[in-house]
């Protein structure tokens, strides 16, 4: 436990050192989305029976959570290939599980920080993101899942460019095809089928459901949990394979 906390605290100390930069980074992107899509379309457009802003904000929460949590991958990538701090983890008796656990917790914390920022933006726009406290379940699972994916990818790739390519070819398309800005029912059948199996879709559906007071089928949460466990286990396995 001490080693997990060490990895986690290291991340938090770094965030503390760059707190204003971090907060600005967490705020700017979702704020721009909110302004461009939310205020731009405002209350005039209704989607699934609610104003577009109310429809979009849960998607934005899922998207920001993904981006921030997955961002741990870029940090680990730098720790592996640039400043080599990752060697410190490998040289300790901590073991793979604790190394991954600490990094996943750190990544998920950054994702949850983005939720807090977006919740405040939502409140300022008259939307209560915590109408149901249950929303915290998919929000947390979303952050844990993408933090675990970030750690896994960072340990699999061999260069900094590979990490960037993964974001370009996987994360960015997922951001737009996962029920975030529009309903996946609008997608052509093939893309719609694809959208239903990618994890962010289940995050945005579950978060939106709880925020809008709708019934959320449990399988969405189950799928998020399964993705999290799979990414986590693969990341643990990858730690030793990343050595060389």
């Amino acid at each position: 436990m001490s080693a997990t906390l060490a990895v986690y605290q290291r991340g938090l100390l770094i965030v503390k050192r760059r707190v204003w930069r971090e907060l600005l980074g967490l705020t700017i992107s979702p704020l721009l989305y909110a302004v461009a899509f939310g205020w731009g379309l405002g209350d005039q457009v209704m989607v699934e029976g609610v104003p577009y802003l109310s429809f979009m904000l849960p998607g934005l929460i899922a998207l920001s959570g993904m981006n921030q949590s997955f961002g741990i991958g870029t940090e680990l990538n730098i720790a592996r290939f640039v400043n080599r701090v990752f060697e410190e983890f490998l040289l300790s008796p901590a073991g793979s599980f604790r190394i991954v656990a600490g990094n996943v917790l750190y990544g998920a914390t950054k994702g949850l920080m983005s939720f807090v920022v977006l919740a405040l933006i939502g409140v300022s726009l008259g939307i209560n993101p915590l109408a149901s406290p249950m929303v915290l379940v998919p929000v947390t699972l979303n952050c844990l899942m993408f933090a675990a994916l970030g750690v896994l990818v960072a340990l699999v790739v061999k260069t900094h460019r590979d990490m960037s390519n993964f974001s370009t070819f996987v994360i960015t398309p997922m951001a737009f095809l996962s029920n975030t800005f529009f309903s996946i029912d609008k997608l052509p059948p093939i893309l719609g089928g694809f959208a239903r199996v990618i994890p962010l879709t289940h995050s945005s559906i579950a978060i939106r459901g709880y925020m809008l007071g709708r019934a959320v089928p449990a399988y969405h949460l189950l799928i998020l949990a399964v993705f999290f466990v799979v990414f986590f286990v693969l990341a643990v396995r990858q730690v030793r394979l990343a050595v060389d």
Binding site: A3, A6, V7, I14, N83, V85, E88, F89, S92
Partner: peptide
């Protein structure tokens, strides 16, 4: 391979905790 953003003491403390 030290954490540039952490202080000398913090670098040491994190290592101690890892161990």
């Amino acid at each position: 391979n030290v954490d540039d953003e952490l202080t000398a003491y913090e670098n040491m403390r994190i290592h101690a905790q890892l161990c």
